[in-house]
Design a protein around this nucleic acid. Structure first.
Lengths: 109, 109
DNA sequence: CCTTACGGTAAGTCATCCCTTACGGATACG
DNA sequence: CGTATCCGTAAGGGATGACTTACCGTAAGG
């Protein structure tokens, strides 16, 4: 049962991470996205398909343009997956680990 | 440069994730680890090297055996990375992130 | 010593990608 | 209606990566 399977595979590629991070900052159309990247526009389309399959992005057409935006659903799956690993990995190393890391939490565990 | 670059690449492979998750549950030697997996022992050694490079595992020798364990340091890097993306994807560009985590210092002139 | 168990490394093969160019469908505008 | 722009998909090639077998160094035990 690996819920974060697709997300990890999608974000493993540097170009796809760059695309995703740009969409996190601001929704953009495909062409605009490709203009700021060192790869061709079809390559961007293929990466967007992979990100969409991983539920990391969503899109809606606006006239001729296809505007993509980041989808929190995919990030949530990854965060949940890592949180489970995190709590288990602590074990006897809890003290040392918590001394070096603090995560921004909005609610109480 | 991306801080969670190595971790994402390491966990993208299913076999490596399986190895890592087993080490999260319990520290194990290489041979014991390989016996429960559908790949050869050298393959496991290579995967462990990748996980070690990503700071996701640590190891210490015990006689002839080399016992590996999960290292929270790598998971922490991933969690930090995702938390930043998460807050931005939700539109929370308020100072929520900067107060709790490493302050993303705006470049001062 | 000599043998056995454990594990890291080397070399080679095979699949899986990532990217490219080329093409086709859809929409806005004259 | 004709044209230009935007975008997804197909096909092919080159690179990266995961796995195998073979080999070597090291530690325990007789």
């Amino acid at each position: 049962m690996h819920p974060a399977d697709a997300q990890l595979a999608a974000l493993a590629d540097p170009t796809r991470r760059a695309i995703f991070e740009r969409l996190v900052k601001k929704p953009m159309a495909v062409g605009e996205l490709a203009r700021g990247l060192p790869v061709s526009r079809p390559a961007v389309s293929q990466h967007l398909a992979a990100l969409k399959a991983a539920r990391l992005v969503a899109h809606e057409r606006s006239g001729r343009q296809n505007v993509y935006r980041a989808n929190p659903e995919g990030i949530a799956a990854l965060r949940n997956y890592l949180d489970i690993l995190w709590t288990r990995a602590l074990g006897d190393l809890k003290a040392a680990a918590e001394a070096t890391y603090h995560r921004p939490r909005k609610d109480k565990p």
